[in-house]
Design a protein around this nucleic acid. Structure first.
Lengths: 327, 327
DNA sequence: ATGAAAGCGCTAACAT
DNA sequence: ATGTTAGCGCTTTCAT
């Protein structure tokens, strides 16, 4: 910048003002300086400017994934894309991290070291308590996940309870009585979907069979074995509600391999509405979450958190997309 | 830091040294200071430190995706995950951006403004020339994509030519003669896969039927129509090689819907080996790319580029995974 | 409308 | 082994 100033025959103050578009500098000078800067491929050093301004213009995104698996769920990528666009549109930057095992302090560190203005955390896993602690200590953040009781951090999430309820009620309406549930209920979102499932069954006066609950972990490779075990035990079921489309599609594959007609003998409903859901055969009935809104909502809550506004949650509406797998 | 110094009764230099683990400071003092810092939740301001050191310790990742679609391809997320881990393991940060339309200068800007030490670019699209220009002007970078003739930027990519060749040869060995190709050949990687396809056909003395080439765009929703058009025209084909698993799975869905037996009447091979490929029915034969290595390779080449080492490429080996869809 | 000067928080000579 | 000092590149009072 000092070079530009010399070449333009002005002080660095003037250059700084011109480059940031201050109206104090007449347009003529401003243009001359801007032009000079461009011709020299000069850009203001963002780090230095931020240091001076005491603002990083950066938000940290922390991926809490139980394994490499989860990050490969198309759904996570959807949220990430929506976040990236939102943040970029605001002219801010996005620092991406995957939380390492037992390194929870990384999150606090990113904020306290002034790297980021706040955090967007994707997923909760078992870190609910830790997140609460961070929030109480004033770390600005917004979390994608389930609306848990007693959370003191702002949450954005789909309406998981309703999603589970809609899916299950739909299956009941189709005449299913023995509806299996596939989902890792230690995962808060899946837990709520399970509650919705239970609620729909109760409402219809159907007694839930605990043997039809499968604590399947996302991405687990043993779907096939499980289904075969069920069939071999003559554990009969006429429908499956799975907590992710990836799981649902895998289940359909396993069932078809065994020659079980879908939806003829077993109806299937998934969750997420990933791209492939409408392309597999049979096309998959599923619960859609509004991903595009997720990024904006998370950033909005994060800003409120940074501004010290009172905490609130955003529940994004959830929609049942009926396709062939449950007809 | 000045507070810590005062409280510890030493100068800021000592605190700085202690906190960065300098061996100049005796362990006793070092521990005392570290402890004090922790108790106060103090962290070194990374921005200020970087400004002083003249090094950002940050790499920029630029996603070049033709649409929202592409970023939802599980494969991209895989690379991103592998990159994140690699960068984090090195104690560096990762700044994520999605390149906006007509904002190619963003890339240069990230480096020239000192935000990042260099760029990892995912995808090439039609930006080959622009990337060349950047590289020639000394912007440090590494690109995931196809090994194009005359690239002056370092490239990491799968062996697309061989991948296309392996897939096609496999189908030929299974007795297929009329093998369709699905892929957007304006996309450099798909272009190479198409070359491999052509090469395998030639080698087997099979004449390629141009009507069997489908310039399908990743994520396009009209797969079903296309397939139906083919079947209705009695455009006969006994195999399909698709440039992504998402496409291949969609195609299988469309074919099954029409009652076409796979692999009985039509054999199918995909590309990427996404998680679902081994779970759909029939399980999908595909070409696997070693994603885990991608992140490390990209970062390695980027470092070489930063160090001013001569440009080189890394071609990651490609492997045919034979499953039921082509038996 | 512009410049001089201070200082954001830190590190690294240099000095002792 | 520790302190003093300068300065990374910028923005912003304050003064003119």
């Amino acid at each position: 910048m000092i070079d530009i100033a010399r070449m333009a025959g002005v002080s660095t103050s003037t250059v700084s003002r011109a480059l940031s578009g201050s109206s104090l500098i007449p347009e003529a000078t401003r243009n001359r300086i801007t032009e000079l800067a461009r011709s020299l491929h000069y850009r203001v050093n963002v780090g230095a400017a931020n240091l001076r301004k005491g603002d990083q213009q950066t938000i940290g995104v922390v991926l809490l994934s139980d394994s490499t698996q989860m990050i490969s769920d198309p759904f996570v990528l959807g949220i990430l894309g929506s976040l990236t666009d939102t943040v970029n549109d605001l002219g801010m930057n996005l620092l991406l991290t995957r939380l390492q095992e037992n390194r929870e302090d990384q999150m606090r560190s990113m904020v306290e070291s002034g790297q980021v203005n706040g955090l967007v955390v994707i997923g909760q896993l078992s870190l609910h308590d830790h997140l609460n602690e961070l929030a109480q200590q004033g770390i600005p953040m917004a979390v994608w996940g389930a609306n848990l009781e007693g959370a003191s951090y702002p949450v954005v999430g789909g309406d998981n309870l309703r999603g589970g309820y809609l899916a299950t009620r739909h299956l009941i309406e189709k005449g299913c009585r023995r509806i299996a549930f596939f989902g890792d209920t230690s995962h808060p979102e899946a837990g709520l979907r399970f509650q919705g499932y239970t609620q729909a069954l109760q409402e219809a006066g159907i007694e839930a069979d605990p043997r039809l609950r499968q604590h399947y972990l996302f991405g687990d490779a043993r779907i096939r074995e499980t289904i075969e075990g069920w069939l071999n035990q003559h554990l009969d079921f006429d429908a499956i509600f799975a907590c992710s489309d990836v799981t649902a599609i895998s289940l359909m594959g396993a069932l078809r391999e065994r020659g079980v007609p879908i939806p003829g003998q077993v109806r299937v409903v998934g969750y997420d509405d990933i791209l492939l859901s409408m392309h597999v055969h049979p096309t998959l009935t599923t619960v859609r979450q509004p991903i595009e809104q997720a990024g904006r909502a998370l950033v909005a809550l994060l800003f409120e958190s940074i501004a010290g506004a009172p905490r609130r949650n955003i529940v994004l509406p959830t929609e049942l997309i009926v396709r062939d797998s449950s007809l």
